[in-house]
Amino acid sequence: MPILFNEMMMREIIMDHYSHPRNRREGDETYKTIYMDSESCVDKIYVQAKIENDVLKDVCWHGVGCAISTASTSIMTELLKNKTTKEAEYIIDNYFKMIREEPYDSECLDEAIVFMNTSKQAGRIKCATIGFRGMDEILKGDKNG
């Protein structure tokens, strides 16, 4: 569903996910968990995924973050839930491409394209990718072991 968001809609989506973050809860011990933080910013979040038969049965997160990290992580959880690991890897890869201003498949990103302007505030790339990077590490870790 290629949605063409206008600027007002993009702002509303970010604010909506910031004010009402989706899937913000703690998963139990059956979830793979990764802790993401950085010395240079305040964001500290846990990304969690329940993977069964190469499908992301559930994705959730908790922690503290700014509007950009909160909204992007919230959108990530909705986007990747019930996707196969392969689909998830494709989406994450295209999200990173969008952030780096490289050609990307906008269709697979759905609401996540609201962060297409992040490179205008380069200092915030870390915030806009924190949840996606967390999931990326979970998937890579899963593959390696």
């Binding site: 240079s40 910013c41 305040v42 964001d43 700014c66 950009i68």
Partner: peptide
Amino acid sequence: VFAQDGATLLNSKGIAVRSGL
């Protein structure tokens, strides 16, 4: 407004301040 978001707004206006701990 979260501190980092505020500092980013100021950055977009050419003002260098620091957010964080």
